Computed example of a mutant assay.
Amino acid sequence: MSKKNTIDSLGTLVRLRSLDVDRLQADMTTQEATRTRYQNNLARMDSLTVSSGATGALPPVLALNCGAYKQNVMAMADLHRTDLALHEANMAVSQRNLTTAWTKRELLGKVLEQQETQLARAQDRVVRKREDDIATQSWMAGRTA
């Protein structure tokens, strides 16, 4: 495989890795928005629990109703906290995947850059050799004339 084909292939791989990184970044953004929604919902549930007031000052039927309400809201908040913890664990895995994909893209980019530099040097050597040969031929022609 020629150097140019290698560079073209590496360029394609770098573009594909970049697309993968972009996709994973978009996924992380979506997951961050979901986490924010969970946190906002938990704050609202905590606010509902606190704002419902003390149950001791209410008549027994209302106190029982208010207590059941608080219990249900707290149970729902506990489920949300569990879901949030699971979601954050998923986010950690996604972050590791993003970091790995970004590292792979960067490494391929460095390899691509090295290959391009080597090709440019090789092409420069060919041009300089050609120029040196022409200069030598010109000089030799001038000496024999």
Results as ranks from 00 to 15, higher is better:
88 E>A: 09
18 S>R: 07
130 R>D: 01
89 A>C: 02
39 Q>K: 15
84 L>Y: 02
100 T>V: 15
14 V>S: 02
30 T>M: 10
63 A>I: 08
79 L>A: 02
135 A>F: 10
45 M>E: 07
89 A>M: 00
32 E>G: 08
91 M>Q: 14
15 R>P: 01
92 A>W: 02
3 K>T: 13
138 S>L: 14
12 T>D: 14
121 R>C: 01
106 E>N: 15
143 R>F: 07
46 D>P: 08
18 S>E: 10
113 E>C: 09
38 Y>V: 01
61 V>R: 00
91 M>P: 08
59 P>W: 08
6 T>I: 08
63 A>V: 08
18 S>G: 09
17 R>E: 04
137 Q>E: 06
8 D>L: 08
35 R>C: 13
67 G>Y: 13
25 Q>K: 15
9 S>L: 11
98 L>W: 14
38 Y>P: 06
118 Q>F: 11
143 R>P: 01
19 L>W: 12
41 N>Y: 13
123 Q>M: 03
42 L>I: 04
103 T>Y: 06
102 W>Q: 13
37 R>A: 12
90 N>P: 08
6 T>N: 07
59 P>C: 02
55 T>L: 04
61 V>Q: 02
81 R>T: 10
102 W>K: 12
83 D>Q: 15
69 Y>H: 00
129 K>S: 00
79 L>R: 02
137 Q>P: 01
38 Y>W: 04
36 T>G: 05
31 Q>E: 14
19 L>N: 14
82 T>N: 07
115 Q>W: 09
88 E>M: 04
145 A>P: 07
42 L>F: 03
103 T>M: 04
137 Q>G: 00
124 D>V: 01
39 Q>W: 09
107 L>H: 12
75 A>M: 09
36 T>Y: 11
58 L>G: 00
61 V>I: 05
63 A>F: 10
74 M>S: 05
93 V>S: 08
31 Q>L: 13
88 E>R: 11
31 Q>F: 06
79 L>W: 04
109 G>M: 09
20 D>P: 03
27 D>E: 15
124 D>H: 07
23 R>Q: 07
12 T>W: 07
17 R>N: 06
120 A>I: 03
99 T>G: 06
125 R>P: 03
23 R>A: 05
98 L>Y: 14
128 R>L: 11
138 S>A: 09
16 L>R: 05
3 K>N: 12
78 D>L: 14
31 Q>N: 12
96 R>Y: 10
52 S>R: 03
92 A>V: 08
45 M>N: 04
28 M>Y: 06
66 C>R: 15
120 A>P: 01
126 V>G: 01
22 D>V: 10
52 S>F: 10
28 M>P: 02
87 H>M: 13
22 D>R: 11
46 D>R: 01
100 T>N: 13
134 I>N: 03
95 Q>I: 07
18 S>C: 02
96 R>I: 12
40 N>I: 10
120 A>Q: 04
60 P>T: 01
105 R>W: 03
133 D>Q: 08
140 M>E: 03
63 A>M: 04
43 A>I: 05
45 M>I: 05
111 V>L: 03
62 L>F: 15
24 L>Y: 00
21 V>E: 04
103 T>C: 05
114 Q>A: 03
126 V>S: 04
53 G>F: 00
107 L>W: 12
66 C>S: 10
144 T>L: 09
